[in-house]
Structure formats: structure tokens, C-alpha cells
Amino acid sequence: MKIAVYGQRFWKKNIPYLSRFLGYACNHSIEIYVEKSFFDILSSFEEFKNLDFPVFSHYKELTKDFSLMFTFGGDGTILSAIPFIRDSGIPIVGVNTGNLGFLATFNKDVFIQKIDKIFSRKINIIPRSLLCLKTSVTDHNKFFNFALNEIVILRKETVSMITIDAYIDNEFLTSYWADGLIISTPTGSTGYSLSCGGPIISPYNKNFVLTPISPHNLFSRPLIISDHQKIHLKIHSRVKYYSLSLDTRLTSLNKENELYIQKAPFYIYLLEEGKNTYYKTLREKLLWGIDQRN
């Protein structure tokens, strides 16, 4: 069995957990590949200075014979790992050593307790849909044009709002006059979209949601559409560029670029700590339904 290990940062307090994990893998003859930057971070600790694992630094090095990827961090770490995973089908085990941990559902203690079940794949594997982006002018061949959480269009270098003409399956929807627009998957519905008034969508649903950011219209509300529909956006701005983000990746585009967004032709697979983890996380981490009066 081959596994990949990824993280963006690491704290000394988490050394015991990672040491037990690496020890378990080595004792069970599991091949461990560590992302190059994360390997350098780990090697800076005295406890890991003698690490001798092969490294990877490009998605082409993660071939389909890898069984799992383990991410150590929070939800942002999982999002940053997606460009490595892409369409390989390698499931992700998110170990929460960060803050919220909405996608990284394994806390450190549970992760160690269930490590046998994780490696034997006797645990829930949930497919998550992604958004796919194409532009009319700019060539994004070097830019990973998929998003697990959301695609966001934002005004740039101006305090003036932008206008976004939206079309669904080539039919005109509306013109959003706002600071921007969020196109979110069910996975991302608990992120930026939620903070802008968007609905929570269970990951078991096949939908996308369009959520305007600070719209200058009392009747401009989030809209849920089928993930089989295609979105076409035209951006109008007083300045030449607007900002575009895909999960954790940010770039600028000329306003001549029209955007074409649809469901990606592949899924990302996340291992969950147990049944009904999603609703449990809503209650415990977003305090969903909590009545502070009681």
C-alpha cells in the first residue's frame, strides 16, 4: 500500500500523533510519500530530522496506485491538497490539527483510535462534487480550474460595485449589482456563501448555489440550481480587472473574460469519522439549532 502525506504547517504539540501514525505505517510495510514542502517543515523538528521518506511535489507523481492521502491541518489544508489529487480518485483522510475542521472530520485522538479501520477502508467514503471553470479569453492551462468549495468573482482596485450578468443554460437570469458573486457547491455552502446569507446544502444533494456579495438590491437573494445546469457570467466594471478565486487560489482577470462554470467530470472522495458526521458537525461547530436561552 502507498499513501501520501500533506500539510501546510505543523506544531510541536502534534508530534506524538504524527509519530504514532508514521510508526504504524512503517510497522505495516506501508509506503509513505510526503509532500516536499511539508517534508521540509517536519525535518526542522528534532524528532523528525532523520526522516527518510520519498517526497512528491507535483500531481503527476500521485499515481492511481496510491490508496489514501492524509492531510494534517484544517479545511484549508484539504482545499490546498485538491490540486495534487485532481481526478486521481485518491480518497482524502483529513486529520484536524487546525481550528474548525468542517471537512477534516478526524480529530487527533479519534484518528489514532480508528487507524486500523481507515487503512482497511472500513469507514464512510463520501464523494464531493466540484465546479469546473473555463474562460473566454485567458488560457488557464497552468491554472487548476476546479473548486471543491466555491468560485468567487470580486471587484478589484475599486470601491465601486461591479455588474455581473448571469445566464443559466443560456437563458438570462439577472444582472447582479454587487461587490461580487459566489458560486458554491454543497461542500462550500457552509463557507463564504453562508457568511453572505446563503443556505446550507447537504453534500448529498446535487445542487449549486449562487450567492451575491453585498448586493445593492433588497430582492437579490441566493439561488439554488441543479448541478446539471451550466452558468455563464459576463462582468462589467469601471476598472480593467476583477478578482477571481477558486477555493484557496486567487488570480486577476481582464473584464473581457467571460466565465463558463459547470459541474466537474470527477469527484473528490473524503473519508468521514462516522455516520451522520455532517449534521453532527453542523450542531457542534456551527452551533446550528442551538438555543442560547436554554
Rank of each mutant, 00 (worst) to 15 (best):
Y6E: 04
Y24A: 11
S237P: 08
A4R: 00
H232D: 12
E46T: 12
L270I: 03
S44G: 11
S220K: 01
F38R: 03
P127H: 00
G289A: 11
I90K: 07
R238P: 01
L282H: 08
H216M: 13
K2P: 06
L68V: 07
F146Y: 09
P54A: 06
K142H: 07
G98E: 03
Y192M: 11
K114R: 14
D52C: 08
F10E: 12
G198V: 09
D291L: 12
K49A: 15
L223Y: 10
H58S: 15
N27E: 13
A81W: 00
S175F: 10
L270T: 01
H140D: 14
P54F: 08
P83A: 02
R155K: 15
L154I: 02
N257V: 09
D109I: 05
Y33T: 10
Y176K: 04
L223G: 07
E61Y: 05
T277K: 08
V159A: 12
K234Q: 12
V239K: 14
S19M: 09
I112S: 08
G74E: 08
Q229A: 08
T163E: 15
N99G: 06
N254I: 05
L287F: 13
L51E: 04
S202V: 02
S189Q: 03
I82L: 04
L42Q: 05
G197Q: 14
N217I: 10
R249A: 06
Y192Q: 11
D52W: 02
C26E: 12
K275S: 12
K117D: 13
N170D: 14
N207L: 09
I225V: 11
N205Y: 15
I261G: 02
D75A: 03
E171H: 07
L148A: 03
N124Q: 15
F21G: 00
M161G: 09
K134F: 14
G197K: 10
S57M: 01
G101N: 09
P54V: 11
T63E: 13
T97H: 02
T105N: 11
E171M: 08
F266K: 01
F38A: 02
I201E: 00
F72W: 04
T77A: 13
G76A: 05
S57N: 08
I32D: 06
H216L: 15
E150C: 12
N141S: 14
I183N: 03
T163V: 09
L130H: 02
L218C: 06
C132M: 13
K13A: 06
F266P: 00
V159F: 06
S57L: 06
S193D: 12
S175A: 15
N170E: 15
I15N: 01
R121W: 07
